[in-house]
């Protein structure tokens, strides 16, 4: 009897392990921190791309509302792919703050002249440290920030798709 209980409990635990590992197969191996509700410390200063003016990062964001931040670079190929979608956001009157990631200012300006400028403001991030303040891992990346709680509410890693644009729009409409 005792032996049977041992056997059955061992069998059951093996089955549980099996199920967990089976589920583990479907878990994405890529990094994502969508669930994270991380706060941003808005106390650092940044430089604007076009006029080299140094401002507090705080001043760029609406304290009451949601803001959209897009990290991009002229050397980044997927950034070109998502560019039309960003222009779409501009057409919808959604303000996007651009962070120019590890880029040559000249190339960045050329890039915008050629493809259009979807950003309401652009700041530079020469060494990539500003992007880390926003919890980014690379380019392109788009982040929706709640100005009131100073936290990230949504993050899109990689180029924005059409669905993402709709999602951003509905997020912002929800709020207002």
């Amino acid at each position: 009897m005792k032996k049977n209980i041992k056997f059955i409990s061992l069998l059951l635990s093996l089955i549980i392990v099996f199920i967990i590992l089976l589920k583990g197969l479907n878990v994405s191996k890529d990094y994502s921190n969508e669930k994270l509700n991380s706060k941003i410390d808005f106390s650092f200063k940044v430089k604007k791309l076009f006029n080299d003016e140094v401002i507090n990062i705080e001043d760029l964001f609406n304290q009451e509302d949601l803001s959209v931040v897009n990290i991009w670079a002229s050397w980044c190929v997927p950034c070109k792919d998502e560019h039309p979608n960003l222009m779409q956001l501009k057409d919808m009157n959604i303000k996007v703050v651009g962070i120019n990631y590890k880029d040559n200012p000249k190339n960045a300006k050329n890039f915008l002249n050629l493809l259009g400028n979807p950003y309401s403001e652009i700041i530079t991030d020469k060494d990539g440290t500003k992007s880390i303040e926003f919890g980014a891992i690379g380019v392109p990346e788009t982040i929706v920030i709640n100005g009131k709680t100073k936290s990230i509410i949504k993050k899109f890693i990689g180029p924005l798709s059409n669905e993402n644009i709709i999602e951003i729009k509905s997020l912002i409409n929800e709020k207002t």
């Binding site: 032996k3 056997f7 061992l10 093996l14």
Partner: peptide
């Protein structure tokens, strides 16, 4: 994974 578990359960059963 399934194959591994078939083998493990088979051997556990035989052992017991």
């Amino acid at each position: 994974l399934s194959f591994l578990f078939v083998l493990v359960i088979m051997s556990v059963t035989i052992f017991f």
